[in-house]
Amino acid sequence: MQKLKEEKKINFINAQNTSIIIFFIGLYGLCARRNIIKTIIALGIMSGGVILFFLSINRTPGSMPPIFIGEVPVPADPLPQALVITAIVVGISVTAVALIMFIAMYHKYGTTNWVKAMKHRMERDKE
């Protein structure tokens, strides 16, 4: 009985559940942090969670990549890897663009805080 419980616990800590938890940690960062850089990091964490999820779905134990070795008994699904590479590239470029925009914004406002930046903009608006 004790052993069964332990096994259940270990089965719960699999890649899919972890990826969902990572995604929501990133979402928490988006909701709760006021620092602009931390927001960008939070977006990175969210997409990290999604990437882990992609890698773990539809995985059959003992499957092998269907390249180089001819006939494979259990071929792995190659599509998620292709999608993940694209997702990683898109994620990197988005982070780069967001950071560059942040630098431009920092030069104008001189703050890394969303709330202060918003106030700053409102004041400019009144002029």
Binding site: A98, F102, M105, K108, Y109, R121, R124, D125
Partner: peptide
């Protein structure tokens, strides 16, 4: 690159 549009774009 106006100061308000930077915030809005971000």
């Amino acid at each position: 690159k106006d100061s308000r549009s930077l915030y809005d774009g971000m």
